[in-house]
Design a binder for these strands. Sequence first.
DNA 1: GCATTCTGACACGCAACCGTGTCAGAGAGA
DNA 2: TCTCTCTGACACGGTTGCGTGTCAGAATGC
Lengths: 201, 201
Amino acid sequence: MSSQPVERPYRGVSAEDRRTVRRAKLVEAGLDLVGERGVVAVTAEAVCATAGLTKRYFYENFTDRDALLRELVDDLLGDVRVAIGSALDGVPDDVGARVSATVRALVDTLADDPRRARLYAETGAHDALRTRREEALDGYAMLLMTDVLRVDPDDPHMRLTSRLVVAGTTDVVSHWFAGDLDLTREQLVADVSAIGVALAP
Amino acid sequence: MSSQPVERPYRGVSAEDRRTVRRAKLVEAGLDLVGERGVVAVTAEAVCATAGLTKRYFYENFTDRDALLRELVDDLLGDVRVAIGSALDGVPDDVGARVSATVRALVDTLADDPRRARLYAETGAHDALRTRREEALDGYAMLLMTDVLRVDPDDPHMRLTSRLVVAGTTDVVSHWFAGDLDLTREQLVADVSAIGVALAP
DNA sequence: GCATTCTGACACGCAACCGTGTCAGAGAGA
DNA sequence: TCTCTCTGACACGGTTGCGTGTCAGAATGC
């Protein structure tokens, strides 16, 4: 019976800390690649090269490239949801104000990190991510109905409308980040919000 | 100086007709693959296997797989535009009627061929197709402003609104075709049209 | 019958990426 | 010092898809 190797510090860093640091480096490298060359560029090899690590450490942390991508996307979509949630706390009970706060939270979250803005735009463009995107968009649509517009989430017309607005907003915001729309951030928020308000019954 | 081979009929079919038939087979095979397994499945090898031809004939007709995909997408987006254009001919000068006719034309065109509905949904998911999709969506947005809603296409707010509506409609219609929305075709057309009308100034 | 074209099958070499494995040398610990 | 762990580099075999090339046999035209 061969015993497991005993973990040991290295250069003054514990084994667990080393793993954590490496994982963080890989995640950052993945985001860098997304930001610079898009989701397709996120291969195990490219991530390792960017992170300055070898493949050994990639597979120490992720089963494959899709696992890393999913983590990036789940983090992002979760953060967006949290940002919207906290933006809605303490906003007056006025549809206009609530819609604006929601849109602003989305835009601000993406604006914090252009790499994530590109990731958000490309979630639709990759098999492994599309499912997550779909779930997230449906979740946002539900949130729009229940917490923002305060409409009946069982009304088929409102379901379709909110889904259309969420998907359309995703597209427009992604385009704005890509520089294709000549608007200030305030205008973007205002214009998108106006659409949301116009569709509230 | 070696002379070019002289083209000759084969099994009673002229050289040009043979090429035409093969090209059509390849296009059909490409669509079949999109319908069954998505855009990613469209490789030169898979297309040939599906078409019952060999790679030689693939490269006789297309420089690479992206060329075939672009042809499929351009055909589709062009057909949609034509369908909308003719639907708008002879429709009364009423915003509601025009919007409905437009949405119906889009839905009907895609409904004619579920493979193309999937292709439409996946244009955003592939590098070589995204440019075409972007141009087409911008074109549809412009068409929506000038020919359907009859609003000023230079108004930034209307530009953003129409782009949002077009992108959102693309998403919702794709979902409907994927079976994710429990609506009749008439309801889909009516609901989407209602959004368009609500956003007309 | 004979030369030529056409077809379809298959063989290549190339490139990217995969996931695993090996190994020498640096570092840690006792 | 001696042993064990840890690291990073690299080798390896496998897969997929690419684009090109070759070739025997069928079909054609004369």
